[in-house]
Design a protein around this nucleic acid. Structure first.
Length: 437
RNA sequence: GCCAGGGUGGUGUAGCCUGGUUAGCACAGGGGACUGUGGAUCCCCUAGCCCGGGUUCAAAUCCCGGCCCUGGCCCCA
């Protein structure tokens, strides 16, 4: 009779090798975040469902992992970190010196159909910068965004920058009420052929003038110097002019940060979340494994207020770990983790004196900082060496009563098969010499 | 939520179309040959038809439903 114990749909078990690689990526990210003086926070995995509903978006609410706890509270697993961070800020940091610079590396939950690069539980590494509305803050965050990918060794990627104010303005110019619908359509521009795209725009209800304008908008994509002048032609309102000037300034700063060559303007990008208010951006890395955006972010100046706080401007980004790692792996960037021990201690026989000597040796090695393991299954020496060989352990220490009677143990080089008998007291020194080479 | 293709020991697979012995093979795991010397060899053992229903004398095989996986749509990290 076998119990049916299945992993929940859309979740994964991470095995030692994957964990080691993941940790390597986390460490690289954490390092850069810290260097930019962001500080790590962690909020609860679940919050009141109300919190996530507040910032609207039916789509997001439908994807919540919601449940009632025993106290009758309606709770949800977090679908992202921004809401929780905003809640934390409103709760206790409104009077903290500005800006508040936080980062997190945590798991998120969304009830969606799993597919390539998408799980129901996934991890994000992100930052939030609260309390500055200045373009310098956007530049700081986007520069860090670029540096984060560079830190993981990713070489081929771009950060595309768009703007919500301009998109809203655009929808207004065309007299479109369903601005979100239009944005989604525009978002799909790269997936459709020119004809299909025009067809879709017609279906959406645009006239020839509108279609012409949309085409003009999506052509505003490329190097900032080349496409921003086009934006100035397309947008005429004062508000739009101000925003475009701000983007110029942003680009200029990003050049100063030294990340300018990664930056492209793409006024067609909208980003999913409704809470973004002006600059939005996403990172794209070319790949053959069906992965789109590997991270994104933007400015959200209204969210804190929506959560009942004093109006506080904010900006941030999130990197999708389950999207970044496959690309890094695909490119062979993540170093192969070393899981095997450097030393494997094999006691021969079952006599307690011998086995204790083996424990003494392995303990001494471990205290000296050596990654050492000891035979624990009682298998015979032949099988034990077989095991060590398969694992690729470079050195084995064999402890038997014959040598032990003279206070000695055998050190075996698994590569060459050479063995030497050394004093038990000297074995740590011996190993440190060997492994240093 | 929708669509397509899949699901056979831990892993990879044969068998399915054309229903019929004890579901075959390889690797991995455990033990032995071998009570102090490895990756070899030989032997033994462990272990499987995703779940439920239907058709049938008989179902891994055919049919229906569900679950899960892979990918696509939607959306997004």
């Amino acid at each position: 009779m076998k119990l049916k114990l299945e992993r929940v749909k859309g979740t994964r078990d991470l095995l030692p090798e994957e964990m080691a690689k993941r940790r390597w990526v986390f460490e690289r990210l954490r390092e850069v975040f810290e260097r930019y003086n962001f500080h790590e926070v962690l909020t609860p995995t679940f919050e009141y469902t109300e919190l996530f509903k507040l910032r609207s978006g039916e789509e997001v609410v439908e994807q919540l992992y919601a449940f009632d706890d025993k106290g009758g509270r309606n709770l949800s697993l977090r679908p992202d970190m921004t809401s929780s961070v905003a809640r934390l800020y409103v709760n206790s940091f409104q009077n903290a010196p500005k800006p508040v610079k936080w980062y997190y590396i945590a798991n998120m939950f969304r009830y969606e159909e799993p597919q390539s690069g998408r799980y129901r539980e996934f991890w994000q590494a992100g930052v939030e910068l609260l309390g500055s509305s200045r373009v310098e803050a956007d530049a700081e965050v986007i520069a860090l965004f670029v540096e984060s990918y560079l830190a993981t060794g990713l070489d081929e990627f771009t950060v595309n920058i768009g703007d919500r104010i301009l998109l809203d303005e655009f929808a207004r110019m065309l007299g479109v009420k369903d601005d979100i619908g239009l944005m989604r359509l525009i978002d799909k521009k790269d997936k459709l052929s020119e004809e299909d795209f025009v067809e879709a725009l017609k279906e959406f209800g645009l006239d020839d003038y509108g279609i012409e304008k949309v085409i003009a908008l999506i052509e505003i994509k490329g190097l900032p110097d080349e496409v921003l002048p086009k934006a100035e032609e397309l947008f005429t309102s004062r508000e739009a002019k101000v925003e475009i000037a701000r983007i110029y300034e942003l680009v200029d700063l990003l050049n100063t940060y030294g990340v300018g060559e990664r930056i492209l303007i793409d006024l067609g990008i909208a980003r999913g979340f409704d809470y973004y208010t002006s600059v939005v951006f996403e990172a794209i890395a070319p790949n053959d494994i069906g992965i789109g955006s590997i991270g994104g972010g933007g400015r959200y100046d209204n969210l804190i207020e929506v959560f009942g706080g004093k109006p506080t401007p904010a900006t941030g980004f999130a990197i999708g770990i389950e999207r970044l790692i496959p690309i890094l792996e695909w490119k062979g960037i993540i170093p192969e983790p070393k899981l095997r021990p450097d030393i494997y201690v094999i006691p021969i026989g079952k006599e307690s004196g011998v086995r204790k000597a083996a424990v003494e040796v392995v303990t001494a090695l471990r205290m000296a900082g050596v990654k050492a393991d000891i035979e624990l299954t009682g298998r015979k020496i032949g099988k034990a060496l077989d095991y060590a060989g398969r694992l690729g352990v470079p050195y084995v220490i064999i402890i038997g009563k014959r040598d032990l009677a003279e206070g000695k143990v055998t050190v075996r080089d698994m590569e060459s098969g050479e063995q030497r008998v050394v004093g038990k007291e000297r074995v740590v020194e011996e190993i440190l010499n060997l492994t240093a080479l």
